[in-house]
Structures are given as structure tokens and as C-alpha cells.
Simulated assay, not measured.
Amino acid sequence: MSILDKKEIFTVEESSVTFKKLIDNAPVEIANTLNEKSVIILPSHGHDDAYYAGTLDTFDFLNENGVNTDIYASDDEYKELGLHGAEIWLGTFIIQSVVVPVFCGVISSYIYDKLKAKDDGNVALKFMVENKEGKTTAVDFNGKVENLSKAIDAVKSLGDEN
């Protein structure tokens, strides 16, 4: 491994983030739009109020493909963080376990077919799956696209538990 090679990050751990907490803590105009959503796109890793460039494309793709999604920001508050480089940054998603199978298929299609991700390219994302009891488990991945399947499989297994 050379000094230029990135170390892969892959973690699965409990999270305190839930749909209820997000909705309860959101301003009224945002909270009203989040009810009935299956997926919420959260601000980017390490940023409280910025989303990765391309978040609106991801949002549109998910909704066009049957995944009822919203962004955790009002139109006025939404701002993108422009990162440049070969890495694909998708951001953070909280997902209700009932839509996990559909979500995994659609997000995989988005990464491989729409973004044309190459196996040796890098991708960074975080999926948080909330089960029926309100317990959330986060799957964080930052590494080669060719290894992304282990993160997708981890998310699928969280959906299967319910």
C-alpha cells in the first residue's frame, strides 16, 4: 500500500438518529414535509448544514424510482458543498427498514448505471436503517467501489431482520 492509497472505512454501529427525533427537532416547514417519507437525505458527513454536490440528482433519482425521499432542509436553507476530485460523495441517508430492498436496488443502480462508477473509484456514503422498533443502525463506507457490495449487503441484512 502506497502513501497515496486510502484506507477503507467500513463500520456498522448503533445510532441515536431516528425519524421521530429528526422530525421533532426540525423547523415546522421541514417537519411537515418529512412525515410519510421512507428515506431522508441528511447533511453531509461532518457538516451540519451542507449537502454534497449532486444531492438533488440523487434525490430526484430515488423519487423517480419509487423511493419516497426528502431532504432535511428547506429550499431556502439548502446549500451544497462543492468537493472536487475523483471520489463520489453521496452523503448520509436514514432509511425505514421496510424500503431497504427497494432502496438498495435503486441506490446501486444510481451508483453503477447513472454515475458510471468504476470499480477502482472511491465512494463515500452512510446509510442509517431504522427498524420497526425505532432502533437505528448506521453503515458507514468510504472505499473502493468494488468493495461497496459489503456495505449494501450489511444494509440489506438490517432490512431482513424486521
Rank of each mutant, 00 (worst) to 15 (best):
T11C: 07
E87C: 07
D75F: 09
I41G: 00
L115R: 04
A151N: 08
L22E: 11
I71K: 02
Y110I: 06
D49C: 04
I30N: 00
G134S: 10
L125W: 03
S44G: 15
K135S: 08
K118N: 11
I152P: 00
I9Y: 01
T58E: 05
D76Y: 11
G121D: 15
A50K: 15
F127R: 05
I23A: 03
F10P: 07
D113S: 13
L22F: 03
I3M: 12
A86E: 14
E80K: 05
K118S: 03
L56V: 03
T11V: 01
D153Y: 08
S16M: 07
T69V: 08
P27W: 00
E133W: 00
G91Q: 04
E64H: 11
K144V: 08
F10D: 01
N142E: 13
G143A: 05
I111T: 09
I152N: 03
V100H: 06
E130D: 02
G85C: 10
E87V: 13
A53C: 12
L83I: 12
F61V: 08
G105M: 11
D76K: 15
N122K: 14
T92D: 09
I9D: 01
I152W: 00
V129P: 01
S74D: 04
I88S: 09
E80T: 02
D70K: 03
A154H: 01
T11D: 10
I9E: 02
N147S: 13
L81W: 10
E36M: 10
S38M: 12
T58H: 09
L115T: 08
L56P: 07
E64A: 14
V99I: 08
N25S: 14
G91T: 04
G82D: 14
H47F: 13
D60F: 14
L115C: 04
K116Q: 14
E8V: 06
K144N: 08
T92Q: 15
A154I: 05
L22G: 00
N147Q: 13
K132G: 10
Y52M: 07
K135T: 13
S44Y: 10
D48M: 13
E8M: 08
P27C: 00
E8T: 06
D153M: 11
I88A: 02
G91F: 12
M128N: 06
P43H: 00
V129T: 02
I71A: 05
